[in-house]
């Protein structure tokens, strides 16, 4: 059985808990970003671009059975690291689980600065877009 959204979040909090300083934390995040597989060029369409990010971010969603699977990419590696965590937490869950998800891990691993409502930070837009997909799929 796959992990629940809560279990994955707790796992991430534990992983990040190993680092004492921000530099180690960001190095790990950058590593996650580098390891995230690139999105196929066919999905890097204008439609899949998330608005409101300083770097271009593409998000592709697909329904597999009653689960929603996300794939994403970005030009910026830190953003890619953030996306990689969001995918790990939210992908492969039902639309309802995704819509209801409370993403407390972002704050707990010390990344809440990326949720700020500025034009340069897109984490909020990414979460919103993932939840929008969930809403759209559940309505079908």
């Amino acid at each position: 059985m796959a992990y629940s959204i809560q279990e994955t979040q707790n796992e991430l909090i534990e992983e990040f808990g190993l680092f004492d300083d921000w530099a180690d934390k960001y190095e790990y995040l950058i590593d996650l970003g580098k390891k995230l597989p690139s999105l196929s060029e066919a999905f890097k369409t204008e439609e899949n671009v998330i608005k409101g990010c300083q770097s271009r971010v593409w998000l592709h969603a697909e329904k597999q059975g009653d689960h929603l699977v996300f794939e994403a990419d970005s030009e910026a590696v830190i953003v890619k690291g953030l996306i990689s965590m969001l995918i790990r937490v939210l992908s492969n869950h039902t639309a309802e689980e995704i819509m209801k998800a409370d993403l407390y891990f972002i704050d707990q691993i010390g990344m809440s600065q990326h949720l700020a409502q500025t034009r340069s930070n897109g984490l909020l837009s990414m979460v919103k877009q993932m939840k929008n997909y969930a809403l759209a799929f559940s309505a079908k």
């Binding site: 530099a23 960001y26 950058i30 300083q54 770097s55 030009e75 910026a76 830190i78 953003v79 340069s120």
Partner: peptide, 20 residues
């Protein structure tokens, strides 16, 4: 390197530049 990544990390060093 993407300017955004540079800007985010420099901020962690307490340095404010503009990227974009």
């Amino acid at each position: 390197l993407h300017p955004q990544d540079i800007g985010v990390l420099l901020d962690k060093f307490g340095i404010a530049i503009r990227t974009g």
